[in-house]
Amino acid sequence: MSLGTGRRAFISYVWNSDAVGARLVRGAVTPLNWLFGAIVARRNAGFDARVREGAMPVAALPAMSVGNLTVGGTGKTPVASWFVSRLKAGGATPALVLRGYGDDEWRVHGLLTPGVPVVVAPERAVGLVIARSMQCDCAVLDDAFQHRQVSRVVDVVLVSADAWHESVRLLPGGPYREPLGSLNRASVAVITVKAAPTERVQAVRAAIRAAAPDVPIAQLRLAPDTIRLAATISGGPGGPRSLQHDLTWLRGRKLVLVSAIADPDAFRRQMEAAGAVVEHHAAYPDHHDFVARDLADIVARSHSSVEVLCTLKDAVKLVPLWPRAGAALWYVSQTVVVEQGAEILDQAVARVLAARRATTPTAG
């Protein structure tokens, strides 16, 4: 186990386990949670004052932010790409602007929304200027709820039902960047669901309603889509075996799962719900950079009767490294299905389209 993998496992243990050891660590870092919360509150108060005074700089393009309250695991990448597609369908020429943490997110966006400019810029205001220079007329900001230096037309905030816990703990004792009350500055709260049971989804909805009673709530399911041969992403090794399957292909099939995502357990539950038999799950830290030793371990666990399956986010990094003699590497991406609140999401898109028309008189 690598140092990074061990660190991720320890953090997950502290954040999610009810074991005595985990509770002791959480208790020990509670003063740090309070300090972090005080810093967040002071920072937000400063931004709130600037908003009230009209002192926020005007963004180069009308923008929609798709963010969350926690550290990863809510489905921002597929949801942000979904909103980009909706804006494009509405006649806009959108860009997707993101910080670019790791080398996987921007590449995944490029595959999910081909032909749409993907701008990597730690300062989103600069990213919007770049997008405008590329003849874009609006943008989706990936993971920008806490990046308040740039104004936005709509703030969409995702809350994962799969990663939900009744105890909302701020960093470092938990995964929350902000308390639930911060949802009051959101335009829309979106519950994302992968494999969470109905009662947990209902608990999330009740918690959002209690913390931010005036914020509209929508619900999206992130459902596994077609299984594709990973080599087809970039014409890598194994290109002639360019196959794809629907989810029925997974029924009874033995798998080695590979994931370097924020919520690997939800990925595994999705595959098992589709009927797969998971013999091993190689779960690495979010945004993990795979090395030769990782691939050797993965390949060693696969054989003629076991398939290797990863997420699209992992496939873009694994394909260039995958050995020609290794088993076929497959990937599954998430498709966005609107379960509740379609009209709320339509209104959010319409607000960005209206702002685009107001600031770009020649826009159709």
Rank of each mutant, 00 (worst) to 15 (best):
K76E: 07
V66C: 09
G73E: 13
A55W: 04
R50E: 15
K88C: 02
K76A: 08
R52A: 15
D48L: 03
G75A: 07
S65Y: 00
G46Y: 01
V58K: 15
A80T: 03
A63I: 02
S65W: 00
A49V: 02
V71K: 06
L87G: 08
S65L: 00
V79C: 11
K88W: 12
V71W: 15
F83E: 01
F83G: 02
T74D: 12
G75V: 04
G67A: 04
G67V: 00
T77Y: 11
L87Q: 09
A63G: 11
A80S: 14
V79E: 11
A80I: 00
R50C: 11
D48I: 02
V58G: 10
G67H: 01
M56P: 06
R52D: 14
A59T: 02
A80V: 02
E53G: 12
K76S: 07
A60M: 10
P62A: 08
F47S: 02
V58Q: 15
K76F: 10
P57D: 13
P78A: 07
A55C: 07
G75H: 05
D48S: 10
K88L: 14
M64S: 02
V84L: 09
A63N: 07
T74W: 08
W82D: 05
V58C: 11
T74Y: 12
N68H: 06
M64P: 01
S81V: 01
V51A: 15
T77E: 10
G54F: 04
A63H: 05
V84P: 08
G73C: 13
V51L: 14
V66G: 07
V71D: 09
M64Q: 02
P62G: 11
S65H: 01
T74S: 15
R50I: 07
E53L: 15
A59C: 06
V79M: 11
R50Y: 09
R52F: 05
G72R: 12
P57A: 11
G72A: 12
V66I: 14
M64D: 03
G75E: 05
P62T: 04
G67N: 03
G46L: 03
G73M: 13
P62H: 05
V84A: 13
